[in-house]
Design a protein around this nucleic acid. Sequence first.
DNA 1: CCGACTTTGAGAATCTGGTCACAAGCGACC
DNA 2: GGTCGCTTGTGACCAGATTCTCAAAGTCGG
Lengths: 227, 227
Amino acid sequence: MGEPRRRIPEATVARLPLYYRALLDTAEREIATVSSERLAELAGVNAAKVRKDLSYLGSYGTRGVGYDVEYLLHEISRELGLTRDWPVAIVGVGNLGRALANYRGFGARGFRVVALIDADPDVVGTTVGELVVEPLAELDRIVAEREIVIGILATPATVAQDVTDQLVDAGVTSILNFAPALVTVPEGVSLRKVDLAIELQILSFYQLRRAFSGPGGLAPERRKSVL
Amino acid sequence: MGEPRRRIPEATVARLPLYYRALLDTAEREIATVSSERLAELAGVNAAKVRKDLSYLGSYGTRGVGYDVEYLLHEISRELGLTRDWPVAIVGVGNLGRALANYRGFGARGFRVVALIDADPDVVGTTVGELVVEPLAELDRIVAEREIVIGILATPATVAQDVTDQLVDAGVTSILNFAPALVTVPEGVSLRKVDLAIELQILSFYQLRRAFSGPGGLAPERRKSVL
DNA sequence: CCGACTTTGAGAATCTGGTCACAAGCGACC
DNA sequence: GGTCGCTTGTGACCAGATTCTCAAAGTCGG
């Protein structure tokens, strides 16, 4: 049953979680409606963008009033698939993997870490939180049994591609890659990357520019003014 | 002495670290030159983009031959400021902060973590790696004495803005925010954001779309084909 | 029920980035 | 030294995203 949904631009999809969070905060304060202006402020974007983004989801606002917080929250979470339960596996239980496993904020909204997997026999069998680390060899069975579709890759760079291939073979169709390495996946599998070193290097670039051109130099990435 | 550098597009800056890493790998294998084609493959982009990006830095290639690996490596690292030493402070020593502190790959290229800072008296005084966690109250002194310009924010969301303000007041001009919260900084300060929950939500969106429209559905983010 | 006021939704214009295509430049080989 | 093949660098074009603007649609007070 493919509702004939309009195509939502990538850039918009990337901002929906921002609105979602802003709306959660607003709902918590028991505020019933928000204007695009206010929502923009909370999400750190501008009002026109908020309106355009939300208009891709449908006409959920009321002119002269704004958006109903609860309703919009519901629509966005449906669109983002947060009404479902997404079992997640973390592969690679080093420093980062462990930190991610303990991270609250996943569990909060549908993302449940249901497996920790590592190749190192010394790590397998250890407990992190409520989970026991399982061996990579069991990956296929684990993914199938627990219906895992999202994998978080926190291995060293050297084995990143190899582990990715195994994840894909096992049936995982969304991968979040924390390993500092290029990883490719077949068509039909989503891949996103988070790279600490790259982020720092980008900051370094703009830092350097500022140092050269003096205060108030060239535009850095995502500059924001204080309110 | 502001060399009249051409303006480099944001998107290009964000890719320079990719090229940098690819070139490092190439240099390690003692390969002297790379074509844009090969570099593109290693960085996961297309060749035209590589050439255009590199052309913003200057004409460092040789037609008919390609780019000299060592030379290009040098130019990119200079452009990114990786020839300098950037002392970094991590504020917030919870799970994530600790993992980041232990993360190799920062230290590697100019980014040295020289301070771990937390507000919790129970955490202050503990040791992580070779560093002792210091109190938030000392921030000003620490930043000044160690000439810290980059701050990594790994606090809970609730105090993110407050800690950011303190970092900025202390003189930090680049901030990498891991806290799941909107943070604003004054003009002249760079801010980048890494948000685990948001990345998962974006994956969830495309996952859902695929589930609806069957395999081979709508275009997911950053899809890549296997080679 | 009307008029003033607010705020959305969306078309048009603009900006930024990505892709294409090819002339220019360089090395190699004869 | 001339010719051939390869690869860069860039101008022209195209696509996607952002911003601007304003008519349309609603609320609210009287």
